[in-house]
C-alpha cells in the first residue's frame, strides 16, 4: 500500500514508461553514447517498481566501476541492502572494474542478441579486472531489463 502511494506521489510509473522508451530508443541508435546512463537509470527504477526484478539484489552486495577507455565516463554502481546506488566517481575495493571503448561496445557486450565476439575481442571493446561472476550477474540483469522493455518477459 505504502509503495503504491509513493509511486503515485513520485509518478514513478510514468517515469518508468518514459525511461523505457528512451532506453529502447538508445538500443536502436547507432552511437548508443547514452547507453550506460540509460541502462543504470532504467535499472534503478525497475528495482523500485518491479518486485520480481528487485529479487535480483535482495541480499546481494556488489561494487562495480564502469569506466570508458578515454576516461570521459566513470560511474560507480553499488548494490547494498537491497538497493542500487549510482555515483559518478571512482570507487575503491570494487568487485569488478569494467573498461569499455564506448557505449555501443558496452551495449554490444551486454545486450546484443548476437554479439560480435570476434570483433569485440580484437578491438578489446570491453575488458574486466576482478571477479567475472559479478559481470555475469550484471549482464543477466541488463539482459532481463532489455527483455522487460521489449515485452519479451
Amino acid at each position: 500500500m505504502f509503495d503504491k502511494i509513493l509511486d503515485w506521489l513520485t509518478l514513478r510509473p510514468l517515469r518508468m514508461k518514459r525511461l523505457r522508451k528512451r532506453f529502447l530508443k538508445c538500443l536502436e541508435s547507432e552511437a548508443a553514447e547514452e547507453f550506460l546512463e540509460m541502462l543504470l537509470k532504467f535499472m534503478s527504477l525497475a528495482f523500485l517498481l518491479d518486485r520480481d526484478f528487485r529479487r535480483n539484489i535482495e541480499g546481494f552486495n556488489g561494487r562495480y566501476l564502469f569506466k570508458s577507455r578515454d576516461n570521459s565516463i566513470t560511474v560507480a554502481v553499488i548494490f547494498e541492502d537491497g538497493r542500487m546506488k549510482v555515483h559518478e566517481k571512482v570507487l575503491e575495493d570494487t568487485n569488478v572494474t569494467v573498461v569499455f571503448r564506448n557505449g555501443k561496445a558496452l551495449m554490444g557486450y551486454l545486450l546484443s542478441p548476437k554479439p560480435d565476439i570476434l570483433g569485440s575481442l580484437l578491438r578489446q571493446d570491453v575488458t574486466f579486472n576482478g571477479n567475472l561472476n559479478y559481470v555475469y550477474k550484471f549482464a543477466y540483469m541488463a539482459k532481463r531489463l532489455q527483455l522487460m522493455a521489449t515485452g519479451e518477459v
Binding site: R55, N56, N131, Y134, K137, Y140
Partner: peptide
C-alpha cells in the same frame, strides 16, 4: 540458478577462488 544456486558460488568457483588466493596474478589476466 539465478536466485538460489549461482549467488552461493560467486566467490567460490575455481576461477575466482584462485584469483583471490593469488591476488589476480598476471598469468591469469
Amino acid at each position: 540458478l539465478n536466485f538460489d544456486i549461482f549467488p552461493y558460488w560467486m566467490e567460490r568457483n575455481i576461477l575466482e577462488y584462485t584469483r583471490k588466493k593469488y591476488n589476480n596474478p598476471g598469468c591469469m589476466r
